[in-house]
Design a protein around this nucleic acid. Structure first.
Lengths: 194, 194, 194, 194
DNA sequence: TATGAATGAGTATTCATTCAT
DNA sequence: AATGAATGAATACTCATTCAT
């Protein structure tokens, strides 16, 4: 009828496997076995292994952007501090709710794959949404400093907590996730704003 | 000193290769070629490929701890804020000056390798040095809150900026590194400290 | 006429591909892509890949025989030397004007394909037309010697120049084709005929 | 001690297989099986499949040149006609005594393999030895015409009989090989000389 | 301290072909 | 008359590793 079911299955299994064991450790055979089809059949749906990753990344970026955009849209009319905080939390939540995507998009670096560079601009789009917010804060006199420095620092702030929670999710004793994130963002914003 | 020269060469070449192309992409043959010896010879010095990584991680943790410890020792007598800031900056500098180690220790996750778990306690030691500092700040009344939450947030803060600078060192236009780090830490500490 | 258009297209594309890259290098998928249909569809028109080759060879032999026969018919009443020369030139021209067929029929050897043996008798028919001519020459007292030896030598003569011109058409600097062939045949016939 | 025995074995088995079934039909596995070693081991001795072919061709060209050169050297002082005939027969004999080499060098065309082009110049060397002989004949007034045309025609003469005897060795009833070759060359030379 | 020879298991990928529609 | 989905078997090649020397 609509999209092939197998293709979706492949994406689902591949993203799980890629996160759990790493892209290079996963063979087409392993994916096929999980999906329950022949390795050959994977090539009906994707040009090659890299192509699976590419499609995965594209989906990831699209979901990512919708997270950020939605947070900004929903809090349009609210106070700047709240709007900014919600956007930052949205970023972290995207990561925690989509660990596979986050890892592939922001922790691993696939730029040596030529075709993956496409994704770069998508990563940029998300970054720019953040930068625009900061710009707004500066215009309102709530934020001071170099907009590039501030944006990059903010990215570091939220990437740090997100990636740690993903990478060491099992090997470190984390306090309650949401309080940690709240504290993290609040503390930084207390220093940044006004 | 003691260890053979070849062994050091192997570690040097392996760590470069592991960072540049990823642990899984590097074969024993590639390492041997770089070192200029036979693949077989690697096995005289290391049990297997995983063992090279293990030794590498051990060295990395040792260097890492010395960075943090030194920062704390050197600023023992200074104001708490400065001491803390220097410790945090030390962490970041360790990463930037030892990108290979940092990536293997904090960005990649090798916990599926049984023997690597040993390293966990070393990572913990570094974390505890930080936590002790916070403890000191709390005792002095300069910091308030849950010590675990604060330590983890602080780790997120500095891991974020460090890992971004390493992972996307070529594919993102960064502002001046040191000013960025200064701003990053200062802003957060402004919010954290009394 | 009768056969579907697709079947002709398949034969046309397949023979080009087989010559350019070799029978083994060409996959059903490549043929299908060139034709612009699905690989599956090839099997509606041919039993399998070998069958495509077989049909191709059959067509080739039929064209081949018509070349030789026509040369003989058209020069029936002329002097023997001219008749023979025209027949020989016809052979060469068949090759040069049908390089794909010539290569498959006379340069490659597909006798390990059971079904291809059928073609053998066709190759024989062409050979026999030549032998008959020689027979005629012997009866007229113009040619002397063992008819088998002469026929085989003649075949070698024209096969040599034809196959070289086809196989090394790009990698050797040939003089003018037709003068070369004329010289080739004339020189030999000068030695052969009375 | 001297050269690895396995390498020679590989070359021996590969050349047989390449002739019998064709380069493309032969897999590394098949070669390894014949040799009695693992497929992997082939890669210790050759970079890849193409490299086996390349080494084979190089050996072939070297043997080929020695055949021709020897014939010329040995008959240096003899009458031109005999010298030329011996050179031509040498060419044919090289083919018949080294069918695998001849097929790979003169019947198949591997020029789409970049590295094989090297061989081109070697093929040229053999051709030039022939051309030089003709040149000598022309200087002695025994041969008349365009030297290029004559050389190419001569090549066609001997390639034709050689390649037919190799390609259709089993599927055609040949008269006695040596008488056929003698007749073939003699007839042509009768037309060519004086 | 080092290496050349070797291998079993694995890699991504392509093959000719079939089947249900 | 044609196709999309699928596959088992094969392809060239690379892997980490071992063993005899």
């Amino acid at each position: 009828m609509k999209g092939s079911n197998t293709k979706d299955q492949i994406i689902a299994e591949a993203s799980k496997l890629f996160l759990d064991e790493g892209y290079e450790m996963i063979s087409m055979r392993k994916i096929a076995t999980k999906v329950g089809c022949s390795p050959t059949n994977l090539y009906r749906h994707f040009q090659n292994k890299e192509d699976i990753l590419l499609v995965l990344l594209e989906r990831g970026y699209s979901v990512f952007l919708s997270y950020i955009q939605q947070a900004i849209d929903q809090n349009k009319e609210l106070e700047f501090r709240i709007k900014l905080k919600q956007a930052l939390k949205s970023y972290v939540n995207f990561g925690l709710e989509n660990k596979e995507y986050y890892q592939l998009m922001f922790i691993r670096n696939f730029e040596h794959f030529d075709r993956v560079v496409i994704g770069e601009s998508d990563r940029m789009k998300g970054f720019n949404l953040l930068a625009n917010l900061i710009q707004e804060g500066m215009e309102k006199g709530l934020v001071k400093g170099d907009i590039e420095v501030i944006s990059q620092s903010l990215w570091g702030l939220i990437h740090g907590i997100t990636s740690l929670l993903i990478t060491f999710k099992n090997s470190f004793h984390w306090t309650n996730e949401q309080s940690l994130i709240d504290f993290h963002v609040d503390t930084y914003l207390k220093g940044l704003l006004k």
